[in-house]
């Protein structure tokens, strides 16, 4: 009996150790960022959105790229409530700053870096991820090799900054060292009782890979400055894919 209790303690300790070695530090500066993702957070290890890590988003069309940037903006708004500034790196800026205000961000607190060469953009993202004073870093690049993603991961492990890499139409969806892989697609918005006009932004959020978590798909709406779950969890990925993930 005694040895069993000891074993379970040991296993828990080892699990924690493994998590921190994988770059998923639970406590970032002793405080926990409430992203307001609600039910989606249950997919992550310890039910906490991994901060101090790099998240990967993949978009295949211009519409889903806009949806992805909207989702990222909603996420970083909770990061920017506590700390100052965010750096948004892209090879060609498509984001329209006034629209960010709807997602709870002061657009003037975002510094945009428009770097023509993808190689330079990656260098800028890495340097920014090393800078502890930033709340978050968003990088829009096309391709990211495994080695490059390792460099980014090593940078955030030291600085505890959260990075969001948005890959628009990548040549291949290769394995990278990021903790999660997301795909965000826009879905038809819902209006009250057949009222005319458009509803709030609504997305199909696919969490394809998450290290030590459970991938899944959800429908999320952005309204009243937060994520809302009006629909239930639509589908679970088959068990075989779950094994592959991470």
């Amino acid at each position: 009996m005694h040895s069993k209790a000891l074993n379970s303690d040991l296993i828990q300790y080892l699990q924690k150790e493994v998590l921190s070695l994988q770059g998923l530090n639970k406590s970032v500066g002793g405080q926990h960022v409430n992203t307001g993702l609600g039910i989606i957070e249950s997919a992550f290890p310890a039910q906490i959105f991994p901060t101090g890590a790099v998240h990967e988003f993949i978009s295949l069309s211009a519409e889903s790229a806009a949806a992805t940037n909207g989702f990222i903006s909603g996420l970083i708004s909770s990061f920017m409530q506590q700390r100052g500034m965010c750096l948004w790196v892209s090879t060609r800026r498509t984001v329209f700053p006034p629209a960010l205000k709807v997602f709870g961000i002061e657009p003037d607190r975002i510094i945009f870096a428009e770097v023509a060469k993808p190689k330079d953009a990656l260098w800028v993202i890495e340097e920014a991820l090393k800078c502890e004073a930033l709340a978050a870093v968003v990088g829009e690049v096309k391709d990211l090799s495994f080695t490059e993603s390792r460099r980014l991961q090593l940078a955030v492990e030291a600085s505890k900054v959260t990075g969001f890499i948005h890959r628009h139409q990548p040549r291949i969806e290769n394995t990278v060292a990021c903790v999660t892989r997301w795909k965000i697609e826009p879905v038809a918005s819902i209006t009250e009782d057949g009222m005319p006009g458009l509803g709030f932004p609504r997305w199909n959020v696919q969490l394809l890979k998450v290290r030590n978590g459970k991938p899944g798909t959800w429908q999320v709406e952005w309204s009243a400055n937060s994520f809302q779950h009006t629909g239930r969890r639509t589908q679970q990925l088959p068990a075989i894919q779950k094994l592959k993930a991470g």
Binding site: D108, V115, D120, E127
Partner: peptide, 30 residues
């Protein structure tokens, strides 16, 4: 820590502009 953070951020921006050019960094105001 915001004043201190500002200094760190501006040092980062100096580094970026030094490498990829001054016209790459932008902030937007309404």
């Amino acid at each position: 820590e915001s004043a201190h953070d500002d200094v760190i951020v501006s040092e980062l921006l100096d580094k970026i502009t030094g490498k990829v050019g001054a016209d790459t960094i932008r902030r937007y105001l309404p």
